[in-house]
């Protein structure tokens, strides 16, 4: 998917993450997390895998993590990407690229 415009998803509540995607060159990930020392690598891997699954090749991605589970991180990244393409409201490929 191509990141057409800047979009965000999520919140700064505990167990959540705020994800922002913007148009960019290649994948540029800026991550801050309340549990960066414990889970930083895992969080980064989950975000990058999700972007890869959605075939996002060019994006500037900012994630402020507040201790989100992997399933929440995935949901927030996916929603931000679909929002940036204006496709988040209907006909989502549940079980396809969303899995």
């Amino acid at each position: 998917m191509e990141i057409l415009k800047s979009a965000t998803a999520g919140t700064l509540e505990s167990s959540d993450a705020l994800v922002t995607v913007e148009p960019g060159e290649g994948i540029e990930l800026e991550l801050s997390s309340s549990v960066i020392n414990q889970y930083g690598r895992q969080i980064r891997a989950t975000i990058l895998e999700t972007l890869d699954r959605l075939q996002v090749q060019n994006a500037r991605v900012t994630v402020v993590d507040k201790g989100a589970l992997d399933c929440t991180l995935k949901a927030r990244v996916e929603c931000a990407v679909f929002r940036s393409c204006g496709k988040s409201a209907s006909n989502i490929p549940w079980g396809g690229v969303i899995r």
Partner: peptide, 16 residues
């Protein structure tokens, strides 16, 4: 936030 809630719901249902 209706769209975001669905993404969150899908992963909760399939993961938890």
């Amino acid at each position: 936030q209706k769209d975001a809630a669905r993404f969150s719901l899908y992963h909760a249902l399939t993961t938890i």
